[in-house]
């Protein structure tokens, strides 16, 4: 997770979770590349994708590094490592599949077990383009979200409705939390915790004498 050399104020890791086939990868590709693929193949070959956005009126740039499950959710085999360092999560269900909505409860438990306790979670009901097949009502999902303290957005990755809204809502909420404690606890931890984070990379590069110590957000 080394810092790229483009210009941003914050780097946030955001994870996508939810049942197989709810459209996580398409939300990711719509948000980061404005692409949509209607073939219902499981995710192969995607590690993570990034996009920089401006948050609020303060003109701060946030680089979102968004992680896809790589299909490991299919048999509930997501690694606990997937959630490490994530500050935001989009928990996605399919508004035409009530089972995927019922499973939101389980995914929420998984997030609360494995992710940082301050993680910002946005519940996303995807596939609003399939109006005639809707089986999950927006009202009940909105009510559930307010009880659980989540934000809630309905999206269509296919028609590109609300996708930016969902990600930006999540990232803005994360930004507000992080910027409030601007002298972040991570820095304080490093001071009393021995050596700092080191950057592992090929020797041919590191021998160019880049600073060997690097602080990741």
């Amino acid at each position: 997770m080394s810092k790229d050399h483009d210009d941003y104020d914050y780097l946030f890791k955001v994870v996508l979770i939810g049942d197989s086939g709810v459209g996580k990868s398409n939300l990711l590709s719509r948000f980061t590349r404005n692409e949509f693929c209607s073939e219902s193949k499981s995710t192969i070959g995607v590690e993570f994708a990034t996009r920089c956005i401006e948050v609020c009126l303060e003109g701060k740039t946030v680089k979102a590094q968004i992680w896809d499950t790589a299909g490991q959710e299919r048999y509930r085999a997501i690694t606990s490592a997937y959630y490490r360092g994530a500050v935001g999560a989009l928990l996605v269900y399919d508004i035409t599949k009530s089972e995927s909505y019922d499973n939101v409860q389980k995914w929420l438990k998984e997030l609360r077990d494995h992710a940082d306790s301050n993680i910002v979670i946005t519940l996303v009901g995807n596939k609003t383009d399939l109006k005639h097949l809707r089986s999950v009502q927006a009202e009940s999902a909105a009510e559930f979200s307010s009880i659980e303290g989540l934000s809630f957005v309905e999206t269509s990755a296919c028609e590109s409705t609300n996708v930016d809204v969902a990600f930006k809502k999540n990232l803005t909420d994360v930004y507000h939390i992080i910027s409030k404690k601007s002298c972040s606890s991570a820095e304080v931890d490093d001071k009393n915790g021995g050596a700092g984070i080191i950057e592992v990379k090929a020797i041919s590069e590191s021998s160019k004498k880049n600073p060997s110590k690097c602080c990741n957000v």
């Binding site: 192969i44 590690e47 790589a70 048999y75 509930r76």
Partner: peptide, 21 residues
């Protein structure tokens, strides 16, 4: 324990199927 998980993710990214339990 992060190490095996990292390589498992690599395999999954290249299409490996994962089943636990």
């Amino acid at each position: 324990g992060e190490l095996p998980q990292g390589f498992a993710r690599l395999s999954a990214v290249y299409g490996g199927t994962y089943m636990l339990a």
